[in-house]
Design a protein around this nucleic acid. Structure first.
Length: 262
DNA sequence: AAGCAGAGCAACCGCGACCCG
DNA sequence: ACGGGTCGCGGTTGCTCTGCT
């Protein structure tokens, strides 16, 4: 593999690898090189591009930041719903989940989960993998997202975009597990209408979900177990959802109170 | 205005899988 | 079959920003 002329054996010796934040110059070098030669073979790419970075670092920078199709900004309710659904199915398979969110990286989804979702679980004083938290996600959070998506569409009967992705019904193993390079198009999901109301959601979920179904009364128990967060207003002993920025404010105490009435 | 704490996110690390000679 | 190089994933770290006191 060829090195740029400017890189002499001498400079090679003192070529200590750079770490930490990328500079604009490094970004340009990487982008220009990939534009000219394509991506892949990251270690040699790093050397040939004249970057004092590991191939790993270059790959990460490209995939998570420089790639032209990378989407930045708030995770939309549709995306949130999809993440919750896919995570309940696959767990921490971030790259796999990312395949279903075009433009989103596994790193971004992982960060979203760790910061937002785990914080949420912390407020409920339970583990993200606990039944309690999964129930909260399934019966409160996800229906609420669906409502929000519908509301945003301006049509109460409109199909929820995310509903076209019903991993629940997808083959458990639609493709070999090395599908990381196969792209999302290799996986096919059957469109399934979402329930029209929160009440229906239990049925909807119950039908396809092998897990335990909790009773509405369990909500109260679940919620009342949670002491108000220090910064919360203490209403109803609920976690202070208003403090959580779900892109926009997803919850209000009033909303949760209404949900509890089911 | 300054200090502090927490949140968010970019980047690194370790490890296992894969590829190729 | 084997070994070295490379890649990709998931977990973790640490820096920066923001809001609060």
């Amino acid at each position: 593999m060829e090195f740029h002329g400017s890189i002499t054996p001498q400079s090679e010796e003192e070529m200590d690898l750079r770490r930490g934040p990328w500079t604009v110059e490094e970004d340009l070098l990487l982008m220009n090189y990939i534009a000219a030669h394509g991506e892949g073979r990251w270690n040699s790419l790093a050397r040939c591009a004249g970057l004092r970075r590991t191939g790993k670092s270059c790959r990460l920078r490209w995939l998570n930041y420089l790639r032209p199709d990378v989407r930045r900004g708030n995770i939309t309710p549709e995306e949130q719903l999809l993440i919750l659904e896919l995570h309940s199915r696959w767990g921490n398979r971030w790259s796999k989940i990312a395949q279903f969110l075009p433009g989103r990286t596994d790193n971004e989804i992982k960060n979203y989960w760790r910061t937002r979702v785990q914080k949420h679980a912390k407020q409920l004083k339970c583990d993200v993998n606990s039944k309690k938290f999964k129930d909260v996600m399934r019966y409160l959070w996800m229906p609420r997202l669906i409502e929000r998506i519908r509301a945003a569409s301006g049509d109460a009967t409109a199909a929820v975009p995310a509903a076209h992705w019903t991993p629940e019904l997808a083959p458990v193993n639609p493709s070999p597990d090395n599908s990381s390079t196969a792209g999302s198009s290799s996986l096919q999901f059957s469109p399934q209408p979402l329930p029209d109301s929160f009440a229906d959601y239990s049925t909807w979920r119950g039908g396809g979900y092998s897990g335990d179904v909790i009773q509405p009364s369990d909500f109260a128990a679940s919620w009342s177990e949670s002491t108000p967060s220090p910064g919360g207003d203490g209403h109803l002993g609920l976690p202070d959802f208003d403090q959580i920025q779900w892109g926009e404010s997803l919850w209000s105490v009033e909303d949760i109170w209404l949900q509890q009435q089911f």
